[in-house]
Amino acid sequence: MFQRFAQICAAGAVLAAATTAGAETKVPFALDWKFEGPSAAYFAAVDNGHFGEAGLDVEISAGQGSLDAIPKVATGAFPMGFADINSLIKFLDQNPGAPVIAVMMVYDKPPFAIVGRKSQGVMAPKDLEGRVLGAPPPDGAWAQFPAFASANDLDVDAITVEPVGFPTREPMLAEGKVDAVTGFSFSSYLNLVRLGVPEDDISTILMADHGLALYGNAIIANTEFAAANPELVTGFLGAVAKGWADVIADPAAGAAMVQDRNPAADVALEQRRLQLAIDANVATDYALENGMGGIDAARMETALAQLAENYEFQTTPDMSLYFTDAYLPDAAMRMLK
């Protein structure tokens, strides 16, 4: 039922794109979150003409998480989107044949992190033992904690886990009610700064730097739409890479583009959020050497095995169901610097 509904919706998306008046093809793009610093690359692709050069008229919509963005693309309501590949893998395991796949890796390292207070003794993974960890139950970083604990040989029985809400997570850490929290590195860090926690008292333990091979957020596409419009998808991905190169070269301009769409945004804060995402998640050694967008097959196999420590697969994991590089432009078109 889901597959048939998705195919009908995807066909509608293809038809809508094909019948757009004028030279540019309309392509709605679903973000996973609200307009913040890391969104700047997509705004740069619009404002600096990269999408236009590819013959695309891209309308960017904010979202409410990867679990919001993935169904939008799977049903064809949006032909392209941005979402966590680990959430996509689970979605496809639970909805076999759903027409959605990752086509370009953006966060070569996911932002899943443990963010703690040095003054409360949390500077390394082992420091969590004997302390209180605040974790929102739906949090993406918390979902990876079993594999993180295994990779770092943590005694989970020695860690007190306090379920917290997203709005109270950083305030509880700032008030000393918990010693560390799970969250996205760039978001939790800056939320603590805004709450007045001294920056030299904040420790960010990025799970990708401590044993996890998992990938992060990727550009996702409706497979029916992509099959019918391969050159369009490749042009879209090339424009995204150029947008990221732009904001890496000039993060201040990127933050200003965010504020243009979100007037309530603190432009200095969003520039810092963007820079944190660039440094930790996007411009990794692998991406700088190979161009952004691709994956290492051996690493992905390890990532799937680690994901199986956090999630019980209903079917045998198959990397080809979750990611394809078939639409990526040449590496030279994806270089970040």
Results as ranks from 00 to 15, higher is better:
residue 162 E to I: 12
residue 162 E to P: 15
residue 162 E to K: 14
residue 162 E to G: 08
residue 163 P to Y: 09
residue 163 P to H: 05
residue 164 V to T: 14
residue 164 V to W: 07
residue 164 V to N: 11
residue 164 V to E: 10
residue 165 G to S: 15
residue 165 G to A: 11
residue 166 F to V: 15
residue 166 F to K: 10
residue 168 T to N: 12
residue 168 T to E: 13
residue 169 R to F: 06
residue 169 R to W: 06
residue 169 R to H: 10
residue 169 R to A: 13
residue 169 R to C: 10
residue 169 R to K: 12
residue 170 E to M: 13
residue 170 E to C: 13
residue 170 E to N: 15
residue 171 P to S: 08
residue 171 P to E: 09
residue 171 P to G: 12
residue 173 L to S: 13
residue 174 A to V: 09
residue 174 A to K: 14
residue 174 A to C: 11
residue 176 G to H: 13
residue 176 G to M: 13
residue 177 K to Y: 04
residue 177 K to F: 05
residue 177 K to C: 06
residue 178 V to G: 05
residue 178 V to K: 15
residue 179 D to C: 07
residue 179 D to W: 10
residue 180 A to E: 06
residue 180 A to T: 09
residue 181 V to F: 08
residue 182 T to C: 07
residue 182 T to V: 03
residue 183 G to H: 01
residue 184 F to T: 11
residue 184 F to H: 14
residue 184 F to Q: 13
residue 185 S to T: 09
residue 185 S to F: 03
residue 187 S to H: 10
residue 187 S to Q: 11
residue 187 S to L: 11
residue 188 S to M: 05
residue 189 Y to N: 11
residue 190 L to I: 15
residue 190 L to C: 13
residue 191 N to I: 07
residue 191 N to D: 14
residue 191 N to L: 10
residue 191 N to E: 14
residue 192 L to W: 03
residue 192 L to S: 08
residue 193 V to I: 11
residue 193 V to P: 04
residue 194 R to W: 07
residue 194 R to H: 11
residue 195 L to S: 12
residue 195 L to K: 14
residue 195 L to N: 10
residue 196 G to L: 08
residue 196 G to S: 07
residue 196 G to E: 08
residue 197 V to E: 01
residue 198 P to F: 08
residue 198 P to M: 04
residue 198 P to I: 02
residue 198 P to S: 04
residue 199 E to N: 05
residue 199 E to H: 05
residue 199 E to W: 06
residue 199 E to Q: 13
residue 199 E to R: 10
residue 200 D to S: 06
residue 200 D to Q: 13
residue 200 D to H: 14
residue 200 D to I: 09
residue 201 D to Q: 02
residue 201 D to L: 02
residue 201 D to M: 02
residue 201 D to A: 04
residue 201 D to R: 03
residue 201 D to W: 04
residue 201 D to H: 03
residue 201 D to V: 06
residue 202 I to D: 04
residue 202 I to Q: 02
residue 203 S to T: 09
residue 203 S to Y: 03
residue 204 T to I: 15
residue 205 I to P: 01
residue 205 I to N: 01
residue 205 I to F: 00
residue 205 I to W: 00
residue 205 I to A: 04
residue 206 L to K: 03
residue 206 L to Y: 11
residue 207 M to E: 04
residue 207 M to A: 00
residue 207 M to D: 02
residue 208 A to T: 05
residue 210 H to K: 01
residue 211 G to I: 04
residue 211 G to Q: 06
residue 211 G to K: 03
residue 212 L to M: 03
residue 212 L to I: 04
residue 212 L to T: 01
residue 212 L to D: 01
residue 212 L to Y: 00
residue 213 A to I: 00
residue 214 L to P: 04
residue 214 L to C: 11
residue 215 Y to L: 08
residue 215 Y to C: 05
residue 215 Y to V: 00
residue 216 G to W: 00
residue 217 N to Q: 09
residue 217 N to L: 07
residue 218 A to C: 06
residue 219 I to T: 10
residue 219 I to N: 02
residue 219 I to E: 00
residue 219 I to H: 03
residue 220 I to D: 01
residue 220 I to E: 00
residue 220 I to Y: 07
residue 220 I to K: 05
residue 221 A to D: 00
residue 221 A to W: 02
residue 222 N to T: 02
residue 224 E to W: 05
residue 225 F to A: 02
residue 225 F to N: 01
residue 225 F to R: 02
residue 226 A to Y: 01
residue 226 A to G: 03
